[in-house]
């Protein structure tokens, strides 16, 4: 029953109220524009993407990109068009270059250094701490741990 209602509603929908038109003439091109524009920086704004900004320059650039999409240019070509005019600054995803190598590998270098340091320190500790006599402090701790309800987990 519900199905039937739904179908009737769908079919009769446009008769009693117009379905709103998409703002863009070509929704497919618009989706591609959006996809590109979220990774591009609006140059005049504080820190906004080309997709989010309402600045006049952003509107012009969106128009420019729309035209390039209509001309069937590839994403790569469109990005090159912008970079050749405004430099890498327009890209929110910095291209991998000599100057940005550190930026892109940095996080993983940091992680590797951190992990290595941790393993080395723990190994070294295991050697140095092994033969320490149990101090009062530690003894108390053990007792405390036991007292705290058998914290096994």
């Amino acid at each position: 029953m519900k199905w039937v209602m739904l179908i009737i509603l769908c079919v009769s929908g446009p008769a009693w109220a117009g379905e709103a038109r998409p703002l863009a003439d070509d929704p497919v091109a618009e989706a591609r524009l959006k996809h590109l524009a979220v990774e591009l920086r609006c140059l005049v704004c504080q820190n906004q993407t080309l997709a989010d900004s309402n600045a006049p320059l952003a509107e012009d650039l969106r128009r420019e990109v729309r035209e390039m999409i209509a001309k069937n240019m590839s994403d790569q070509e469109i990005i090159e068009f912008l970079v050749s005019r405004y430099g890498d600054f327009v890209l929110y995803r910095p291209p991998l270059k000599a100057t940005t190598t550190l930026l892109w590998v940095g996080p993983f270098v940091l992680l590797t250094i951190g992990a290595t340091a941790l393993v080395i320190t723990l190994r070294r500790r295991a050697h140095t701490v092994v033969d320490v006599v149990v101090t009062d402090e530690e003894h108390r701790k053990v007792e405390q741990l036991l007292a705290e309800g058998g914290k096994r987990s």
Binding site: L43, E64, R85, Y86
Partner: peptide, 11 residues
């Protein structure tokens, strides 16, 4: 604003 874009004018 087309010439502006070709010149990379942003303000």
């Amino acid at each position: 604003g087309r010439v502006g874009i070709n010149f990379g004018v942003y303000g």
